[in-house]
């Protein structure tokens, strides 16, 4: 009975991870701009692989192999965001027509804008 529960939980995690991979693939092919596509790809590299490997760990039980799988998760969660960050930074510094792709805002200006909008809404209400 317990074996079955473990197997089903592992399988559910694995399927959920695979679903995230499918979302990632659709995003990579549907988005047009590099940073959007990278966002989709990075999601699969962290969350998708995390859930899939967690499912495999559950199915495998606690032994040396699952420890190795856990280290794989830790490694990927460190390295994949860092590499995505570097690629994104390179894209931002070398983009030839940035105003076509994204809007650059300073945080203070954004805050002021948001508070102004809130005031407007409260006044209307």
């Amino acid at each position: 009975m317990l074996e079955w529960i473990r197997f089903l939980a592992g399988a559910a995690l694995l399927v959920f991870g695979l679903g995230i991979f499918i979302v990632e693939l659709i995003g990579v092919y549907r988005f047009k701009y590099v940073l959007n596509r990278m966002h989709a790809a990075a999601m699969g590299d962290t969350l998708g692989i995390g859930f899939s490997l967690m499912g495999l760990i559950l199915m495998n039980g606690l032994n040396f192999t699952s420890l190795k799988l856990f280290f794989v998760i830790v490694f990927l969660w460190f390295s994949s965001p860092a590499s995505s960050h570097l690629i994104a930074r390179l894209e931002v510094t070398t983009d030839e027509e940035p105003e076509k792709h994204y809007r650059r805002v300073e945080l203070k200006k954004l805050e002021a804008e948001l508070t102004a909008r809130e005031e407007m809404e409260s006044r209307e209400a």
Binding site: A82, H85, R89, T93
Partner: peptide, 10 residues
């Protein structure tokens, strides 16, 4: 020229 130097995240 373009690549980050002393990137704190990296």
């Amino acid at each position: 020229v373009h690549e980050p130097k002393n990137d704190i995240i990296l």
